[in-house]
Design a protein around this nucleic acid. Sequence first.
DNA 1: TTGAAAGCGATACCAC
DNA 2: GTGGTATCGCTTTCAA
Lengths: 353, 353
Amino acid sequence: MNDSSGAGPAPHPGTATAPTSAAVAQLAGVSRATVSYVLNGQAAGRVSEATQARVHAAAQALGYVPHAAARSLRSGSSNLVLITAPADTVPAFGPLFAAFVADFQTALQGYGYTGVLHGASIGQAPEEAARAWAALRPAAVIATLGTPLTERSVEILKRSGTSAVVSHGPPPVPGSHGIPLDQESVGAAAAEHLLAGGRRSIGVVVPQEHGLQMFSAPRLAGAEAAAAGVPGARVVPLELSCTEESAAELVARWPQLGLDAVFAYNDEYAMLLMRALQDAGVDIPGATAVVGADDLLLARLLRPRLTSVRIELPGAQEIAALVDRLIREPQTPPGVHFKSSVHVEARDSSRTA
Amino acid sequence: MNDSSGAGPAPHPGTATAPTSAAVAQLAGVSRATVSYVLNGQAAGRVSEATQARVHAAAQALGYVPHAAARSLRSGSSNLVLITAPADTVPAFGPLFAAFVADFQTALQGYGYTGVLHGASIGQAPEEAARAWAALRPAAVIATLGTPLTERSVEILKRSGTSAVVSHGPPPVPGSHGIPLDQESVGAAAAEHLLAGGRRSIGVVVPQEHGLQMFSAPRLAGAEAAAAGVPGARVVPLELSCTEESAAELVARWPQLGLDAVFAYNDEYAMLLMRALQDAGVDIPGATAVVGADDLLLARLLRPRLTSVRIELPGAQEIAALVDRLIREPQTPPGVHFKSSVHVEARDSSRTA
DNA sequence: TTGAAAGCGATACCAC
DNA sequence: GTGGTATCGCTTTCAA
């Protein structure tokens, strides 16, 4: 039972006996308090240099790793930052999101936080997911990609001590902070570009992939709003799945749709649609102009080169800085932070005749 | 100080006072022990139905969420499963990896674990990263995408109680379990396919992107091994970055390379290279056959359609089942699990004349 | 300069 | 059927 009564370290490396600060203290011949001071840099002027060296040596020898749970239990706050995303939509997002997560985690680490990505499982109620997050007592939760987030979710998190809840994308739920992704502007920019080129019948691709509605709907709305200001302009929603069959089906109806332009949601859908259109003999951009979004390398590799709407997102560094501020000053009133701006990278696929 | 002395819940929702099991007990008029039994389903035959109902009601009213850190401190084991990946390479991986993570997290949840993705920051020493993971006392660590993992890292994790360390991709470090991704086979399959088509001078793209060497090296080695068995066959490594400039530079040297085939690492590099080759007037597959890998939708959208090597990976479900077994039976001797198989999806880009 | 000891929140043994 | 209570590993105040 008393496995900590023996002074020796585990004889067989690999034995699952996590060394505690008590073990370090014993090996160094000091008290646990001293170990804590030394290992947390609070030893200045309290513990002698010689003792500090002994403690460090003992910790090293034992391979001591502090127990994050115990630490945060005692200190009352964790350094965990949860980045949440609806599990089913993560794969549908491209390298942009992956890069964001990677950069964000790195930036958070610079502030002393541990950022982890926690996918909300399919079919899980928002509140259920919120409880799972709250159980970890994170310092902050960043809900990306339209993570289902209700007012009740935010309350659960806040009540369990999460100081910052930031939603990245959809309009912020009351009580949470928001970082807009400005989907309307993307649709609007695409439509405006096409309208400026003289196009009047604009199809807007609405991906049928689960979880993308949260992004496609505002993009469509933005395009519709832009078209509303131009006499004779119309916008037609086009349902499309990410398969060749779906694209072929859509293109089969192309003549009767009477479109002279299409905003294809993003570069990947644009590629899919362009291929189907070209296979059907539709001239791009002559008969139909095509615009994508995200401005991936892909866009420049297509022929004709793909016009693409690029979103200038707030960088991971800036969001990390915001999160740090929100954690240290929890009184900061919830609101919307940053502005994102959009640029249209005009290329051949939407060239005016 | 005594914030738990009052029986009433926090008057202002949003006040950061996490309700504890003591608060639930007080509201329900029972002891903390009873609360624990009821909320963990250990109440069968111990606590009356009426009491259970009162406890549940109280927990509901307070929005009580158990403190995972306290629980795992007491129980000695957490239900956390860490999925690690080198932060700088995550964006370079496509939807396949994102889908794996999403599925894996969902599968883990089915076993009662909380799976989170934890990117190892750039420039962090393997042991430093291992200590950060160990601090969380995870039940298991899945090191994906060639996460730097040393024997010492594994020891750190094992000593701090992690029962399973699984490396997903590179050959397993002693003490850890391995799930092969079989990169050699991918390169070998591509080369064999090209050799069977009569090609003899095979270029193999080696991406210069940081972190991809761990995958490109064995793919190259596999191709070289396959070529070694065929008289007159040769393999030429081709360094390439994921930019148009780099591709143009490579293609400028194409004539003097004298290649009649190229294995382009994956579909995305293949697209980049094919575009550059076509722009330079190189006939595909006439002059040069091209083979990609991953068999993305992309491959079918290119013209000529891209031949692609598809890897049948062990599914997220199966790996989750393995992890669960390893956690419950930590004595399972480390070894290599599953086999991956490769298929060549032959299309126009490598058609024999 | 160092150590003893009180708790953070949850669990489970053992007594009532 | 229920309730005290010791305990997990760590931090930090206070005393020596």
